[in-house]
Amino acid sequence: MRASLIQLSVDSSETAEERRHRAASLVRGRTGDDLVVLPELWTAGAWSYDRWGPDAEGVDGATAEAMSAAARQAGVWLHAGSIVERDADGTLYNTALLFDRAGDLHGRYRKIHRYGFDTGEATLMGGGDGIVTVPADFGVVGLAICYDLRFPELFRGLLDAGAELIVVPAAWPAARLSHWQLLTRTRALEEQVFLLACCAAGAHGGMRQAGHSMIIDPWGTVLGAAGTTEETVTVDLDMAEVTRIRTELPVLRDRVLAIQAPTTR
């Protein structure tokens, strides 16, 4: 299967609508891919807290509508990064959306681990409470977002829920690029999954983005990586490698302190 990460540049020079138009155009250009991934909170800006309220929307809002159409027109599974979702009760969530080739919404994940240390996301948004995996026509996809990378128990839960490929959209700060590179490879290696980590480029809310989006195989090998500017990374993946590697090096079979398998939704 062919996967592409679209490392969008997110800065204050564009409106959310302008970014939606540009992102949709880039997705439509990925005809022939199987899975396309966008970064975290690319419409409002993950660090532009002042935009979260005005740019918040439902899972059937303007971004979902545009991404659904783009997925259908390109004939791809589209992980549309994440949006600032406003729930019916007014609570904001950092919510990832996964569309199938027909443009139907097949997966919604509300970010569990909120970044900010009692500021920012940690105080302005609600937290999700469910592990999410989605069966696609190329394998089982697990969903996580950015700061989640620092919590290995989530990724072990995704593994136990059947994940063979995990997608992580992000808006990781450039100042901690080395952590991004280490944690993404570690999560792929320890769960023996393909990991698709799509980070934003540019700067917004005063925060320079790390970029360096990566596609990593179950050995922890980086198969493709971006730099610091807007670009697309495309790699052909052999999903049979997941089973082969788990058989050749059966560390998952040898687990002793296994956690209880989570409920998926």
Rank of each mutant, 00 (worst) to 15 (best):
R2I: 09
L5M: 12
D11V: 01
A16Y: 01
E18Y: 02
E18M: 10
R19F: 02
A23C: 02
S25N: 12
L26F: 09
R30Q: 15
R30S: 10
T31P: 00
D34T: 11
D34G: 11
D34V: 08
L35K: 01
V36N: 08
V37C: 08
V37Y: 00
L41Y: 00
W42D: 08
G45E: 04
A46H: 10
W47G: 01
S48Q: 12
W52G: 06
W52Y: 04
G58E: 07
T63G: 00
A64D: 03
E65C: 11
E65D: 14
A66L: 05
A70Q: 03
R72S: 14
Q73T: 15
W77D: 07
L78C: 05
H79C: 11
S82N: 08
I83G: 09
V84P: 09
A88G: 07
G90R: 07
Y93D: 02
T95R: 12
L97H: 06
A102Y: 08
G103W: 07
H106G: 11
K111L: 07
R114I: 01
G116P: 07
D118F: 13
M125P: 06
G128V: 07
G128D: 09
D129G: 14
D129R: 13
T133C: 10
T133D: 07
P135L: 07
P135E: 12
D137G: 02
F138M: 10
V141P: 03
C146E: 04
Y147P: 00
P152A: 10
E153A: 09
L158E: 04
G162I: 00
G162F: 00
G162W: 03
A163R: 01
E164N: 07
W172M: 08
A175F: 11
L177K: 11
L177V: 09
L177Y: 10
H179D: 14
L183T: 04
R185E: 09
L189Y: 13
F194K: 02
F194L: 07
L195Q: 04
L196H: 06
L196F: 10
C198V: 09
C199M: 05
A201M: 02
A203W: 01
H204F: 04
G205E: 05
M207V: 15
M207Y: 03
S213E: 03
M214A: 14
M214W: 00
M214P: 02
I216R: 03
I216M: 06
D217N: 14
D217E: 05
P218T: 09
L223Q: 13
G224D: 05
T228Q: 12
E230A: 12
T234V: 06
V235G: 06
L237H: 04
A240L: 10
R244P: 01
R246D: 06
L249Q: 13
L249N: 14
L249W: 13
V251C: 09
V251D: 14
I259A: 15
I259G: 15
T264K: 11
